[in-house]
Amino acid sequence: MAGVRIALWDLPTRIVHWSLVVLIPFSWWSAENHDLERHRWSGYAILGLLVFRLIWGFVGSSTSRFASFLRGPRAVLAYARGSGDKRLGHNPMGGWSVVAMLALLVAQVGLGLFASDDDGLETGPLNHLVSYATAETLTELHELLFNVLAALIALHVATVLFYLFVRRDNLIAPMLGGSKQLDAEPAARPTMARPLRALAVAAVAFAIMAWISKGAPLAW
């Protein structure tokens, strides 16, 4: 097959993506089974991944940056009508759906940090910062919001399947392997960030996650 193979998604972005695919259902499952210990650990892992992804959205490879895939309403409308540019990476609608999912995930994890079960024995690490009544409300929101998150994820998966079967465009393989086969050399190839930079961002994300999991103390 002629054409070129280009690097599309960097390794850190793929690791974040597939880890979330595993951890979000696990978080749901552990909560339903009242295994709050595992639920907390899974939540911390998601928190660390989220912090990483948010920073990576500013300093990562070109296809992972928010600035590269968040487009104005005109670009989104043009894309919805079937015209518009065919850039590499997230399309103008997909970009917003990614940010919506990340934002909901931030809210979901954020609420979980303050949540408490009825016994008050199992709590998120920031529960001590809010009153009993506030924690009760935040816990209810935490349970409700998951349904919205799940709906958005379902939409996301449905769209990917639509591209696979109707548009005959396999988006899954590049998210797994990182590269995409193109018919011709694109106008510009995505620029990939250096692995060392990913390690530095991962260290920062881990530190922030660890600090929050300790209850965000202001002094050690």
């Binding site: 008050g120 709590t123 529960n127 001590h128 009153s131 009993y132 009544a133 924690a135």
Partner: peptide, 9 residues
Amino acid sequence: GAAFKGLRD
């Protein structure tokens, strides 16, 4: 529950 949380806090 509120009193117990108070102690924990």
